[in-house]
Write a protein that binds this DNA or RNA. Structure first.
Lengths: 193, 193
DNA sequence: CGATTTTTTGAATCATATCAACGTACGTGG
DNA sequence: CCACGTACGTTGATATGATTCAAAAAATCG
């Protein structure tokens, strides 16, 4: 079955049929994104969200000094994009690019609005997605403000084991807000236990 | 007009009438919470969310060493509670208590479900609230992983000026994940500019 | 295989935490 | 109105965890 079909029905209580899904699917535009290619560039407006069928992506902010800070990591069955820019059509503070070659489905804000009103299941999915997102970012903040580098890495491994072997350490370090050198030492220390 | 009435219509596009609001209001239970009194205790299940009419509250996590980490601050026209525990009836990792004497309106999960299905405006409000929350926590994470203590305090003042004179510095320091001593020094430095 | 990316490691440095002491402000009860 | 306690803020000295930088080692990829 199509990953997006499963994804929607996974979240919804009023399941969609395969016929429904054909209509839903027609609102999405398939695209291949090569490694390092951008879906969104900092300063631009996020015109579409991407549902990842295959591959891995990252969202990052480049500061005044040119340093990239990884804000989110994404793999299959995740949505990639900048919500603020997408919803309000404001210039994004983030870039999104492919870390691996990707296959994604793109959807515009207008399509989302249409799908939301036509398909209760789609609406429900978005709701739960938002809820889940809220909860997980909340946890991430708790970890970020209260933990040491070591604790934060442990929390990360607990919450996102599927990222650990999918992204290199320096990317994960940036995601955690610590340096790659520190992460290397933290991991070494962890292994000795 | 009632603050909650304004709040809902502020977010909704299909406004509610005053008659609608009388029904909506009937689902809420008014309560006064004295300073330092808990709405939710860590380990308990969050049975209700509080809409704050008057006063200020905080949410915090107490770690193994007994140190409190402030996770959220709330004032008038904010919702206080732990979403994860509220939605999934799991023990909460957080406590919520009153920092000032408060007047709140309590609502249960069942009432929220009923209100959501009966009043599209209420549903819409919750959606936008979630969206707004997602965006602001996202910004907070960006600030937390990429900035120095000084930058993080500046971001905080930018985003939440109304908190600055409402909560003491040691509370704000904890919210930012820095020590009260460091915050004191950061502020001193800031004044000299 | 060579080229590139990623990881490791040590040494020096820096930012922040910690601790303790003191100063200040505020509110309450006498 | 004063005296006291409590909470809050500031400050210096010191400790510590994390960063930075540079270099080398290891892994990955075409």
């Amino acid at each position: 079955m199509h990953p997006l079909f499963n994804y929607i029905n996974n979240y919804a209580t009023n399941l969609i049929t395969e016929d429904d899904f054909k209509i839903i699917e027609s609102y999405f535009v398939p695209k291949k994104i090569k490694k390092r290619q951008c879906l969104l560039e900092q300063g631009a407006i996020c015109k579409q969200f991407a549902f990842i069928i295959k591959g891995a992506m990252r969202k990052y902010h480049t500061d005044q000094k040119g340093v990239e800070h990884i804000v989110n990591l994404y793999i299959e069955n995740w949505w990639a994009g900048d919500r603020e820019s997408f919803s309000f059509s404001t210039p994004s503070a983030y870039s999104v690019d492919a870390w691996e070659d990707c296959e994604v489905l793109l959807v515009t804000r207008e399509s989302v609005a249409k799908l939301t009103s036509d398909f209760p299941a789609f609406n429900e999915m978005l709701l739960k997605l938002d809820e889940r997102n809220n909860i997980s970012t909340h946890r991430r903040i708790t970890s970020a403000i209260s933990g040491t580098a070591e604790q934060r890495y442990e929390d990360f491994v607990d919450c996102h084991p599927y990222f650990v072997n999918r992204f290199p350490q320096h990317i994960i370090a940036s995601y955690l807000g610590i340096s790659k050198d520190t992460l290397s030492r933290v991991r070494k220390k962890g292994l000795q236990k």
